[in-house]
Design a protein around this nucleic acid. Sequence first.
RNA 1: GGAGAGGUGCCUGAGUGGUCGAAAGGGGCACCCUGCUAAGGUGUUGUUCCGUUUAUCGGAACCGAGGGUUCGAAUCCCUCCCUCUCCGCCA
Length: 438
Amino acid sequence: MLDINFIRENKEAVAEAVKNKKIDLNLDQLLEIDEKRRKIIVELDKARAERKELAKSAKGEKPTQEQIEEGKKIKQEIAKLEEELGSINDEFEKLMVKVPTVPSKDAPIGKDDSENVEIEKHGEPPEFDFQPKDHMQLGRDLDIIDFERGVKVSGYRGYYMKNEGASLQMALMMYALEKLISKGFTPMIPPTLVKEFVLFGSGYFAGRHFDENQDEVYKIATKDLEADGKTSKEEKFLIGTAEPALLAYHAGEVLDKSKLPLKICGFSPCYRSEIGSYGKDTKGLYRVHEFMKVEQVCLCEADKEQAEKLHMEMLEISKELHREIGLPYRVLEICTGDMGPGKYRMFDMEAWIPSRGDYGETGSASNFLDWQARRLNVKYKTEDDEKKFVYMLNNTAIPSPRFIISILENYQQEDGSVKVPEVLRKYMPGNAGVIKKK
RNA sequence: GGAGAGGUGCCUGAGUGGUCGAAAGGGGCACCCUGCUAAGGUGUUGUUCCGUUUAUCGGAACCGAGGGUUCGAAUCCCUCCCUCUCCGCCA
């Protein structure tokens, strides 16, 4: 969400963002509706002032017949105007939530992911002098991932982690969490079952409300919802990442400037319905309905320079995690056409996955400026007592499945065993350095 | 799950149909007085939107959220959300 005044005053820049981000939005229509909206507000305020005046003149005594008649007339007019305003506000809102953040001048302009720019590459993909296995084979052979029973119990894309697989997953989470704590992040384990506004706030819904065509999100229905055919309880949703729950932590609050920037790292299970990706990455751990993740999030003052610095700082942490674990990686700068509407600038991390012969996404670092803070209404007070929306940023630290894929495949040995990256060993039972066949 | 109580400004808390954006106290801020500290006095103290302006003024909305009744609602009615107490159930 942007400020309508900003949109009015920076029409060209916003129009260009709409174009470069390929957003289906008619800006002129929005501005027209805005004008109508303001006209109605003026009329409505006037009518309400009249009502107030009349009510005041009646004071303690019984109102006269004329006053009642007059009041009824005003009442009707207010009702009419309120209805008009209501429907125009709906239209206004529908368009407003589509207005994108104007991307950074540094963000490459491009139509889709084919125009993302590789800006950094680190580490060499391993050369195997034997026939390497993919992570599914390794998982089965070492008895650390069970896909068949996962599907039996959970359905398509279900899986079990077991033995060192389970330990490795927890080790990754602990390692990421400790790393971030050492960098000054506050650890949190947020709720994963959240209200609608939480996901809207992060930008998950195109509108203010969940729409049935949503690709990613699980909606939770309770028994109460179906009683009498009317909704009696608020619906809940499962988060796809800790980000929305971490950002909504301060929703509706005015923060103390001295507390900024706020750096938070969250551990959470993540749920993704992946409805839009049937038939894509159907094998293995690459695309699953649930996994665990440690996420980084920052809230800072409305200052682009500071936000940019935090963005780079978080990206640097991601690189460090990849380097320390020993995964060859590359960093992509995401182009305007592949960037979400709310984003100012965005980078993807990708780790080398031998069985794909390619890099696969392991994280995403985004700067939203105040786009999310406006939706969540998170502000801070400046020195001169001015209230401003904070800037919000987020970045993955470690998602469990894709790191596990990359570790298993990159660290496999000729004898079928897998070495455990040095930094993870202290979190493995018995400091296990190798995962062997039982 | 059953029974009850309640959600008001930065905080405590009054307000059950009109004079209430809201008493009172506390806190904060400004000034005054008082020869330290302390105490006292006066004033001030929310958010959002719209218009005007460019920094002033005017108007509207907001007393958990949404809807309703009324000429008029913080106050009455309905639904929901949340908090607290007791009982039950589960861990």
